[in-house]
């Protein structure tokens, strides 16, 4: 089926009433949508983990969706929250090449642009965005990131801390 906003909202409302078939269809569509949504903003080897974490969050927070409101902005808020949380927790990634074919496509470009991770990320000052991009997404060490972008190591750490704090504050607003 086509995962347009009204269909997803309808499936979600049915899932809230306990319809398992609708829920299964919704989860499959959400998995596809989330893979596109996270796109290049996550290291490829962490994409499946993040999608699964977000599906679990969706499951536990089903009651927080208001059937009178659009579905995708709700799902995007859940996804952004899990994404920022994931950035906090990660890692030095083993692979840093991003899968270009996962760059998001959407049938509703205006909505997609409004709720995208890029829009959230663009709210950050460039130094903070760069520090997060290099260390938390591409998986460089702080020293490597410092060498790559010219910021001192302590500045990289400060910018990551401030950037993640700012992202958390803007999850729904940006």
């Amino acid at each position: 089926m086509k995962s347009d906003e009204p269909s997803l909202a309808r499936l979600m409302a049915m899932a809230q009433r306990g319809d398992q078939l609708a829920y299964r269809t919704l989860l499959i569509e959400c998995r596809r949508w989330l893979k596109q949504y996270f796109g290049t903003r996550i290291a490829p080897n962490h994409l499946d983990d993040l999608v699964q974490e977000t599906l679990l969050a969706l499951h536990h927070k089903l009651a927080t969706y208001d059937p009178a409101r659009p579905f995708l902005p709700w799902l995007a808020a859940i996804a952004r929250y899990r994404w920022v949380d994931h950035l906090r927790r990660v890692y030095r990634a083993e692979e840093t090449e991003l899968e270009e074919e996962l760059i998001g496509r959407s049938d509703e470009p205006a909505i997609a642009a409004r709720i995208s991770l890029d829009r959230l990320f663009e709210q950050l000052p460039s130094a903070q965005a760069q520090a997060i991009e290099l260390v938390k997404i591409e998986g460089l060490s702080v020293a490597e990131a410092s060498h790559a972008c010219g910021q001192s190591e302590s500045l990289i750490k400060v910018n990551i801390h401030r950037g993640l704090k700012k992202l958390t504050a803007m999850i729904e607003k940006a």
């Binding site: 809230q16 499951h59 927080t64």
Partner: peptide, 18 residues
Amino acid sequence: TNALIDELTAGLEPVRPL
């Protein structure tokens, strides 16, 4: 992820929206 979706679907209970 398919196994996760199967498990979540099986565990679905009706919820009352907040």
